[in-house]
Design a protein around this nucleic acid. Sequence first.
DNA 1: GCATGGCTTGGAGCGACGTTCCAGTATGGA
DNA 2: TCCATACTGGAACGTCGCTCCAAGCCATGC
Lengths: 247, 247
Amino acid sequence: MLTRERIVETAVELLDSSGDGALTVRALTTRLGTGPGAIYWHIGNMDELLVAAADAVITAALTTPRDEAATTEPNEAATTHPDRAATTQPDRAAATPQDEIRAIALGLFDAVAEHPWLAAQLALQITRNPWGPVTLRIFESIGRPVSTLGVPEADWFTTTSTLVHYLLGATAQTSQSDETATRTEAGRAEFLATASKAWRDLDPDEYPFMRAIADQMREHDDREQFLTGINLVLTGITTLHQPPIDP
Amino acid sequence: MLTRERIVETAVELLDSSGDGALTVRALTTRLGTGPGAIYWHIGNMDELLVAAADAVITAALTTPRDEAATTEPNEAATTHPDRAATTQPDRAAATPQDEIRAIALGLFDAVAEHPWLAAQLALQITRNPWGPVTLRIFESIGRPVSTLGVPEADWFTTTSTLVHYLLGATAQTSQSDETATRTEAGRAEFLATASKAWRDLDPDEYPFMRAIADQMREHDDREQFLTGINLVLTGITTLHQPPIDP
DNA sequence: GCATGGCTTGGAGCGACGTTCCAGTATGGA
DNA sequence: TCCATACTGGAACGTCGCTCCAAGCCATGC
């Protein structure tokens, strides 16, 4: 029996294994041993399928407890800390709101790193339908800890927007689409060296700044830089909204 | 005579007038009164044409002096402040680096608002080719004032990245793709009211935060919120990098 | 003046895509 | 047993990016 879930699942598999352009109706039909009519009975649209695929992966990334280690058996991790396990998101509690935000952001960052097609999809869906299910979910996840951050309620929307926008921009650029090259450690090092050299060879009149930071480009780590950016925004938030008078 | 510039120019016209999906090779051929072979003689690829179109618009947005008023005759504005006029970008000088960054960011924001197709293109190109000409130009423009901000040179890359990533994420989401509806003032108000109501009707268990900020959604202004976000990041930067010891 | 050879053009056509249409099958209730 | 409804998969349509190629253009050398 063909179900919407099975189609979405297969779509994600296709995207994961063969990249952006691999998700075609024809590829789905062969993989599922069926015809286009069957697929369009369950799914109205190719775009709708892409939204569903992205939503599935994002939802998984947002609800999975961020344990940094347990990737195969999340239940096992849950038994490690059996108290506190009643909440929706088992671990992660007992941390500062800042820690929560960092954890969620890193979860999304890693999800995009694991599913390179997700970067383009996120970007596209956010421009085409700014408040689709994907944006909504991310906003809610980031907004919840923001509301416990001490920010006045009137600024919740703007503050969360800033965080989410940074997060989306950063994941968009940092998703190595050049898969094969950047998959390995050596390939990534080579990529960085090449880019760094390209910047150094730019026109000094037109690109003085890029030339100045070419070295930093070669030595930087995407994930670390992402976290630094999050911390920068968090610092801005706490600086603006809670003056140094400590209770 | 057909030239690459003429093709790019026509491509921008097509995109501006008829939106995202209007730029096809066939549309170009009819508009230019030629055939596909002629076009592919000057342009290697459809993607390459899209990059060129985006680059053209972005470059224009980054080099135009941001005078908020003078759109037709930039030279006139230059005479207003005749000193300092020797730099590449006539006015804008004599301001703080923060002002410069705000001006550049708003310039990009307005460019995306004026060319709605640009949002999706920026997002796509940045994920597909993170250091293409468009990203490079934006990075250089933002990075230059950042380097005069008092941030230690070792942090220039990360700091500029944070600003650019926020900027890209914000413009991506804030580009009303739903053109006709949001073009007019009334249409936009209706759009906001509808979205706000949709948030209020969400499941209280799953989306408590979105429900809490539904009102702020209805009353917010995109451009203003964008600026607030920029200021938030700028505050984070100055807070982290120059301790309150004032010279 | 004229032939030559390299740019440049535009039309025909190829393969692949998303999508629709529809004849057919299965299944569960009357 | 019959039938309505849910579902399937193959054929086909229109459009897309792109390639191929015969013809045109035009400056140069003879």
